[in-house]
């Protein structure tokens, strides 16, 4: 079933449109609305936002893929973002990455775990150098992280998931994403959106 914006999400995007100077300037925040409702930003979600803001889906896709922080289909339910920049690198980042790779059986920057629960990536400086090494798991910062603390964090994620909590689980990579990007507009019946000038 294709993704639909909830009433609440629609109302929130409408309220952005009412408050911000241009429709387009709502784009980054509207994508966050989709991310919150869906748990990630899907191609369908991009097309719906594009339609609401009078943009072409291709333009929205271009924006989403410029900014690495949006959660996408490929990420795990729990997205482990290890800071890889200098201070964290000096203070044990590599050890943390190896530890997670071994513990979860995933490659850093590679595919998520088979159960979809975890993905691991190195990110650039997250402004937590005073508590290096640092990691962000979904929205939450964790500082002065040790392998022991990581085990606890991973266990807490598993417990939350087992209890039915946490964000929705992304579905995994979109197999034909490039082809869908070219065609997902008509497929959704949104082909009437006019192209936007520079």
């Amino acid at each position: 079933m294709p993704f639909e914006l909830s009433e609440r999400s629609r109302a929130e995007i409408e309220s952005l449109i009412a408050r911000y100077p241009t429709k387009k300037s709502c784009l980054l925040l509207a994508l966050r609305v989709v991310e919150r409702q869906q748990g990630w930003v899907s191609l369908d979600g991009m097309a719906l936002v594009a339609a609401m803001l009078g943009l072409s889906p291709a333009e929205v896709y271009g924006v989403v893929t410029f900014y690495p922080h949006y959660k996408r289909e490929v990420h795990g339910k729990y997205r482990l973002m290890v800071c890889g920049t200098l201070t964290c690198a000096l203070l044990g980042m590599k050890r943390l990455v190896r530890h997670i790779e071994e513990r979860l059986g995933v490659a850093c920057g590679g595919a998520r775990t088979a159960d979809g629960l975890f993905s691991l990536e190195k990110v650039e400086c997250i402004a937590a150098c005073g508590g290096a090494p640092a990691i962000q798991i979904n929205d939450q910062y964790h500082e002065n992280v040790t392998p022991q603390k990581l085990d606890d964090l991973i266990a807490a994620c598993r417990r939350e998931h087992a209890a039915g909590g946490g964000p929705p689980m992304p579905p995994g990579p979109v197999r034909d994403e490039p082809a869908r990007v070219a065609h997902f507009l008509p497929a959704l019946g949104l082909g009437r959106v006019a192209p936007v000038g520079v």
Binding site: R19, L28, L29, R32, F66, Y67, P68, H69, V123, C125
Partner: peptide
Amino acid sequence: LRVLLMRGAGAY
């Protein structure tokens, strides 16, 4: 005076 928030998304 109104203050509006904008969130970036991971681009230095």
